[in-house]
Computed example of a mutant assay.
Amino acid sequence: MHGNLRTAPADFLAGGGEMSALMQTFDWGGTSIGPMDLWPQSLRTTISIMLRSPIPMVLLWGADGIMIYNDAYTVFAGGRHPRLLGSKVLEGWAEVADFNANVMRVGMAGGTLSYRDQELTLHRHGAPEQVWMNLDYSPVIDETGKPGGVLAIVVETTERILAERRIAAEKDRLRELFHQAPGFMVIYSGPDHVFELVNEAYYQLVGRREVVGRPLLEALPELAEQGYDTLLDEVYRTRQPFVGRSLPVYLLRDPSKEPEQRFVDFCLPADLRQGRAGHGSVCRGQRRHRAGSLRGASAASAQRAQSPRQEHADDGAVHRVADPANGGFDGGRAGGDRGASVRALAGA
């Protein structure tokens, strides 16, 4: 009814772009697959589909893996195009002959292969270069019911891989700078102020204990009555920056001993991630080794109303500032309420 289903010699190449024109003029009689008018319909149909695809594809036909490819593959081939056309795959890509030998062995036996971000060294422009690709290989069944060739889909991922590596290297560099910072630095997440990242100076302040991945009051339970959780709640809720100076804090650096008093300068800047789900807080500061300004404060000064003042920081923002030396905090007095200063500041 349909007569000979095989198309005219070059009809299947119509609409295939640059590679259609090159294929029509190529001397296929000099290859193991013979002249085009003798090609089986399975080969013609596969080429017709491949030529019209926007995805880089190459057909490796016959036992020699004679290379036939589309326009998109010419971009991947670089300077090896058009010499690859009609070549044996093990010779066309000689630098990866072992890899392609396995492809041909598996594909011609009816198997498939799939690789993600496969790294190979190719000589596409006269010099070796590292290339990453997503590769998928499938057998093409011919008129005998057996594989007549292998169809490969080749999507280069080099640009993405290199970009991801640059980003990862930059993150590592920033993380190292974070850990080496001379002042203590902390990144919290969420309303429970879970420790995401702390640096070496912070461990020197609070003692060697597991804090990362734990909420503030679980990691440092001694802060529960000191008001720092309330202060973080306020910063988290309002997203308003805060600066504290010479604020007292009692830390259980050694579980076998009583909490030790420290005085710290610190700031809680506005969260750079605000507006995103799961935003948190950042704390950076330094320990004060002496608290002379606190201990020298007069009783009258220590009893004055404890209200934070404001000042303009270098970034132009207005920050709430707590400065006990300016007359409001009694954290340096023995026996005083450890959390009164910070709770008053936070409005508790």
Rank of each mutant, 00 (worst) to 15 (best):
T238I: 10
P255W: 15
A344K: 05
N102V: 14
R175Y: 03
G213P: 03
A305F: 02
A77D: 00
L120D: 00
L13V: 12
M50T: 09
G190I: 14
F99D: 08
D330V: 12
M133G: 02
H125P: 01
I55C: 02
G296H: 08
C267G: 03
T158K: 09
R320V: 02
G79A: 13
L5M: 11
L220W: 01
P40S: 11
R173N: 02
S114D: 06
L232I: 11
D142Q: 11
A101H: 04
D98V: 15
G227Q: 04
T31R: 03
I47A: 02
L231W: 08
A334S: 02
M108F: 06
Q41W: 04
P259I: 14
R320P: 00
V342G: 02
A291R: 10
S307H: 05
A152G: 07
T157H: 05
S87D: 04
L120P: 00
S32L: 11
E218H: 14
E18C: 06
H2R: 14
L162E: 01
A77W: 00
V282F: 11
L205F: 07
S301L: 13
R44T: 11
L197P: 00
G110E: 04
S48D: 09
E176P: 00
P54V: 08
I187S: 07
G331M: 07
V198M: 00
V103T: 13
P182D: 03
